[in-house]
Amino acid sequence: MYGYYELSDFSINFGGIKARIERDGNAYRYIRESDGRKERIILAKNGRIIVNPIEPVNLPKELTNFLMIELKEGVISEPKSKMDVFLTFPIEVGIFLAAKKDVDVLDIFSLNPPKFSIYGNPRDGIICRYWKSGVSGELPNVDPKREGIMKLRITNSSNEWVEIRNLVFDIFGMKIYFNDEIVASNASMNVESLRVAETSFIAKPLHEGMKKSLELYTARKIPMVGKKFVMEWGYRG
């Protein structure tokens, strides 16, 4: 599933999405069959293919770098408290081409249909990739091809009870880890007042031994400006 493959014998069936690389004269031909056929010619003598989950904001086109997670059930947090909960996030799969100490994106696909929403108002809000997630106190059992598990540490720094129904993350700072069973990410939310909260990702795997995904924004050499996001339009939906 996720992992490294040799360029010359790459072939995967990812939940029904079939991708492979064939020899085409002196070059290689990448072929993916789902949602229509996608082909790309690779001019390389050799190299490796990396398949791993990436930041879920690339499909159907790059429109935003923010991920909004709406919670199915509101989370109520007591004043001055810290607690961990588990959410899910959508998975997009990146196929990377690696050779001569450089990587590039060959293809991106997902088993989840994408959906977008606005955080804030239509005038000066933010377009976000939308995802609806359940909340649980224990590791949820999800399909690692479709959903990742996000461990969220909620810190309520305010002096009041708060209810959280929405989270928005700047995806530039997202770190995704995976093993054979799960795909996971670690995040935190600091509730500062009844209206304002700050979210960020933590570079720490859920379990020891999990591999770190190659980040798309690193591969595309996009400089990261900030990792934290201030939710100034509230978190109560």
């Binding site: 249909p113 959906k115 977008f116 377009i127 939308y130």
Partner: peptide, 11 residues
């Protein structure tokens, strides 16, 4: 509308 990715959920 729900199936179209760019038809926004909110508003």
């Amino acid at each position: 509308i729900e199936e179209h990715p760019f038809a926004l959920k909110n508003p």
